[in-house]
Simulated scan of single mutants.
Amino acid sequence: MPGPKDLDPSTSPRALLGAELRHARENAGLSQRELGEPLFVSASFIGQLESGTRRMQPDVARRIDEILGTNGFFERNCLAANKSRYPDHFAEAAEAEAVATTIREYAPLLIPGLLQTEAYARAVFRGGRPTATDDAINELVAARLERSRLLDDPTSPMVWTVLDEAVLRRKVGGASVMSEALRHVATFARNRRVIMQVMPFDAGAHMTDEGALKLMSFPDAPPVAYLQALGTGQLQDDPATVARYELAYHLLAAGALSPRESLALVASVAEDYSHEDQQP
């Protein structure tokens, strides 16, 4: 019986690789848990590989080939499936985001990537990479704007973001850039495309004080949490860990301004930046 053909990288390679994994696992008579045990990963991790929400690393692919007897198929094809326009530490999260049905995010310092304008994104990347070439910055900006096309669909994914007040007050790119960026966020909220709240400074300490948090859920795979720090990022899929982060997010939202109050604050700060930009 002929083995599977190598995957064409132009046709959703991650999804194809996941489908081939499910097919090979079922042909071997193994459950997701039984395949995961010798790999020292959870059944939910195998499910995420099969659904295309997690990337298959070469060492895992090599062991899968050994266990399932697939003659190096997964090791050969995982590199093509892992090609990405995004920085390595964020690539897996961006690709999971693209197939998520709900995205909940706490942003402590910057407007979330999905909601950024071109000028704001450019200022963010230039600030973080002061020696990068213009071509490199242009490529990063283009990838970020491509991500934002997820919001072209009027209903899916459901996006709920909580912005720390610091996001509003940090003058990224100058007053005119901030005015445009905050008006952009306000438009999404006003059009009910995004649920947006603001955590005000006077709310004090809260459970997510230590950094950014993104929670994603999927139609055919367990939810994940993404934690990001300087030049690093990690997806968490342990159910107990994800549940703890989900609780933290709900408590955060409960302590934030209401969506109506948040929209009024964002619009007011955007107007302040607009007036500042017009001053001689």
Rank of each mutant, 00 (worst) to 15 (best):
M1W: 09
L7H: 01
L7N: 01
P13I: 00
A19F: 02
L21M: 12
R22M: 12
R22V: 06
N27W: 12
G29D: 14
L30H: 07
E37Y: 09
F40M: 13
F40T: 06
S42D: 05
G47Y: 07
L49N: 02
E50L: 04
T53G: 04
T53N: 07
R54F: 02
E66M: 03
E66H: 02
N71R: 00
F73K: 00
E75T: 06
A81E: 02
A81Y: 07
S84T: 11
S84I: 10
R85W: 14
D88R: 03
E97L: 10
E97R: 01
A100T: 06
T102C: 12
P108W: 13
L109V: 12
P112I: 01
L114D: 14
Q116M: 08
Y120Q: 12
A121L: 10
R126A: 14
R126T: 15
G128D: 15
T131F: 15
T131Q: 15
A136L: 12
I137H: 05
I137D: 14
L140Q: 08
R149N: 15
D153A: 09
P154G: 11
T155D: 15
M158C: 08
M158D: 01
V159C: 05
L163I: 06
L163M: 12
V172Q: 00
V172G: 01
V172R: 01
G174V: 08
M178Q: 06
H184W: 13
V185H: 04
V194R: 00
M196F: 12
Q197R: 04
Q197N: 06
V198C: 07
E210A: 11
A221T: 06
A225S: 13
Y226M: 04
G231Q: 03
V242I: 14
L247A: 08
L252K: 06
G255K: 03
S258T: 12
P259G: 04
L263E: 11
L263V: 03
A264V: 05
A264G: 06
E271V: 01
D272I: 02
S274W: 00
Q278C: 09
